[in-house]
Design a protein around this nucleic acid. Structure first.
Lengths: 144, 144
DNA sequence: CAGATTGACTTGCTTTTTGCAACCAAGAAT
DNA sequence: ATTCTTGGTTGCAAAAAGCAAGTCAATCTG
């Protein structure tokens, strides 16, 4: 189970993307990483969707295999593990933001975090730049 | 099994969107509807990913329940059924295009339909407008 | 420095969803 | 009339999801 199933169903980029992201949980973990800056196992567990620990564990493993995140030991507390999003992960912000817009438009029970959306809509490039910058700082802070 | 499972995991629009779209097949059917203008059961079957007929049948049913498509009998051939995307469905073009960009950037085995991407990138609004317009014409052609 | 607690998982088991392959029925073509 | 096509359904095996409980090392607590 070390390598993820690398068989892609077709050469279509949508299908290739969905081979990695196409399930109910993966993109929620990515959302938590990018937009809510969650970094620890317990943080993801506490998201309102209440993912089961075995599934979370599996998704984190797969995301690492696909190079969407890096796993590190917390220098401040050796029993904690820090999950850091990579550039490949951060670049999922635009598709996720478009899903937010769609969800907000069509699913009545959805409740948008207005400030996040507004910041993205106003200037997507700056928004992305900010995320990348703070990520770089974080990386330096606990490099090892 | 008539009504789709309407329990949303949370009020987050990403999670709400994924409650509907979050699996390996649904967005591929939507892609076929929007970008390749597939309309018949057999068209979807023939996509390179080779969806199984029972799953296709199930996804078409669920998409209809969620008002992403309309099912009609073909006036020209009574045994054929036309699946027409709705506005709600067409509005998934932006998230899908962003997935295309991501897939094209990061998944080496993916092979983009350059013309589609270019047309979208050059002028997203016009691209969307065209799709909507041709959909309206199609609707009139086989209204009933 | 022993004992309780926390954080990050794993295991076992049940339920649900996928994925074949085969089958079927109504309408159209010959 | 019978053969083919289209759009499915059914049955069954395999994989994935979901839940509760257990593990195990690190670290706080007294």
């Amino acid at each position: 189970m070390t390598k993820s199933s690398q068989i892609s169903r077709s050469s279509c980029p949508v299908s290739c993307a969905l081979d990695i992201l196409g399930d109910k949980w993966t993109l929620l973990v990515v959302r938590d990483l990018i937009f809510f800056r969650k970094r620890y196992f317990g943080d993801f567990q506490n998201s309102p969707e209440k993912i089961a620990t075995n599934i979370l564990s599996d998704r984190l493993k797969k995301l690492e295999e696909c190079h969407l995140l890096l796993r590190r030991r917390d220098p401040a507390n050796a029993r904690k593990i820090i999950y850091m999003p990579t550039e490949k992960c951060v670049d999922l912000a635009p598709p996720i933001m478009e899903l937010v817009r769609w969800g907000a438009k069509y699913v009545p029970e959805s409740d948008v975090h207005e400030n996040l959306v507004q910041r993205f809509e106003q200037d997507p490039l700056e928004f992305m730049g900010e995320i990348r910058l703070s990520l770089r700082k974080e990386n330096e802070a606990n490099k090892e």
